[in-house]
Design a binder for these strands. Structure first.
Length: 290
DNA sequence: CCTCAAGACCGGCTGC
DNA sequence: TGCAGCCGGTCTTGA
């Protein structure tokens, strides 16, 4: 599941390959067309597959950026700007290829849903096995309010103070700290993997109530989250289960993970424990995390 | 108005 | 071999 570092890797890989290219053809999978016919918004949100494809036609990709776990493609059509917003969900992936057959892994080839062809003949293909990802075309970011509710980028100067202020809101007081740090309105880009690692690294129990944590410890936690995210960014992200970077290459962070998906604590060797927090499996060490 | 649970969106994988 | 159930990022909806 791609979190901030993985999404960043995708963006950096796409940038040199597709920036400045003009879209000459867009194909949407039969699967998505059928879902739409059944009244579902599978991957393509707020638009029919046909209208989505039609709108992209003739657009030029001006700029590609990551914001939290979203990818923003700034597009230009004639003189009008648009933003193509994409979230990879659990299993979304982009491939820059000349042909669908160039996607070597069958499950990604089989679940290719949006194929964008550029005027030079190259393609950018969006594949998503479980279809939890999303694609939406906006005239401007503010047309989709949730994008304005996101916490600042974790590396921004104000991000820590924003985090501290948010954690003081009444609705977070009784929540487990892990639920709070995985909430994108509090911190951007920290999902299950990096929340699990950060909490382990500072020895904090994932179920610790937010109101029982001092400002000092909140700052230490925030700093650890930033450090873990930066370490992962530098290593090209974690390659776990369904995430692949754009060239199908593996990142290096998975080898540094100490608690996520582990059966034993690397510090004390005791068996790790699991609890469900905010609907997600949380692994921790009952001996080392308090 | 706020908060929270449930619903929506899924198929690979595990385990019986 | 078959199949039920698990898993999860985020927004939306209903209570």
């Amino acid at each position: 599941m791609p979190e901030l570092p993985e999404v960043d890797g995708v963006v950096e890989a796409l940038k040199p390959v597709v920036t400045g290219k003009e879209i000459s053809d867009v194909q949407v999978s039969e699967t998505l067309q059928k879902s739409f016919a059944l009244g579902k918004e599978s991957i393509i949100k707020n638009s029919s597959p046909d209208a989505f494809a039609q709108a992209l036609l003739g657009m030029t990709i001006e700029k590609i950026e990551r914001r939290a776990k979203y990818i923003f493609f700034t597009m230009q059509k004639n003189t009008a700007p648009y933003v193509f917003v994409n979230h990879l969900g659990m299993t979304g992936a982009w491939f820059t290829v000349n042909d669908l057959a160039d996607i070597t892994e069958e499950k990604y080839r089989k679940h290719a849903h949006i194929s964008i062809t550029f005027s030079d003949g190259s393609k950018m293909i969006y594949s998503d096995i479980r279809r939890f990802g999303e694609c939406r075309l906006l005239e401007k970011i503010s047309d989709y309010p949730p994008l304005l509710q996101m916490a600042p980028e974790p590396f921004a100067d104000e991000a820590c103070e924003y985090f501290i202020a948010k954690t003081k809101l009444a609705k977070y007081q009784n929540k487990p700290i892990k639920a709070v740090i995985m909430d994108g309105h509090v911190i951007s880009g920290c999902g299950n993997i990096y929340a699990t690692e950060s909490l382990f690294r500072i020895g904090m129990h994932p179920n610790r109530q937010c109101q029982r944590i001092s400002d000092k410890n909140k700052r230490a936690l925030f700093a650890e989250i930033v450090a873990v995210l930066q370490e992962s960014l530098a290593l090209g992200g974690s390659t776990i289960s369904d995430y692949r970077n754009i060239n199908g290459e593996a990142g290096g962070m998975q080898d540094r993970l100490q608690m996520y998906g582990k059966k034993h604590c690397p510090t004390c060797q005791q068996a790790t424990k699991q609890v469900t927090i905010a609907g997600r499996t949380s692994t921790y060490c009952g001996h080392c995390q308090h």
